[in-house]
């Protein structure tokens, strides 16, 4: 088997080469290095391995499964040349300023609405800031204005708080009552 090495890891030619990425369910994805580099985690691996990188034998991603990585790749493909996002927050309320999403991004999240938490976790592990923050914003959008019951129902979360604990929360967090 011919082995390719990652000489000159930052060169534009390398970005056009393919690298194999193996997810935790042993699925192999052949991806252009330029696309894979949207993920800082993968980019670091490529840079760290340098010349010893074997492009054909694959980069293992033990914390991401195939179906999710497929969705992540779709994002990376679209955002491979996008500038770094800027995270800002309101100085008074500390609330993060919301990003304005493009039509494509809105559609992307509409498509994967039921996998938002998985996407956020994958984006966090793979260090893809744009996907991470946009997903978190989308999750916040879903939580906003809903009652605890509705939130639990939506995300399939079990209510493990007793009535006493809830009363205690109300007592110690006066701000939550308005």
């Amino acid at each position: 088997m011919a082995t390719e090495s990652a000489n000159g890891v930052s060169s534009p030619e390398l970005n056009e080469r393919d690298v194999v990425i193996t997810t935790n369910d042993n699925r192999n994805f052949t991806v252009k290095i330029g696309v894979a580099r949207v993920s800082k985690t993968i980019n670091n691996m490529i840079q760290d391995l340098g010349e010893s990188l074997d492009l054909s034998s694959g980069i293992p991603l033990p914390n991401v499964d195939g179906p999710i990585f497929e969705k992540v790749l779709e994002w990376c493909e679209e955002h491979k040349n996008a500038p770094e996002i800027k995270v800002e927050q309101d100085p008074h309320t500390r609330e993060r300023k919301w990003f304005t999403m493009t039509e494509w991004e809105e559609e992307y999240f509409r498509k994967f609405l039921s996998h938002l938490w998985d996407l956020a976790m994958a984006a966090n592990y793979l260090e893809i800031p744009s996907l991470y923050y946009y997903t978190c914003q989308k999750l916040a959008e879903r939580i906003k204005g809903r009652t605890p019951e509705q939130i639990r129902e939506m995300f399939g979360i079990e209510d493990d708080l007793t009535e006493e604990e809830k009363a205690e929360i109300r007592r110690t967090n006066v701000w939550c009552t308005y």
Binding site: I143, T147, P148, I151, L161, N173, W175, C176
Partner: peptide, 8 residues
């Protein structure tokens, strides 16, 4: 305030 009561 609402999220406080979702779960532990």
């Amino acid at each position: 305030g609402q999220a406080l009561f979702v779960c532990n």
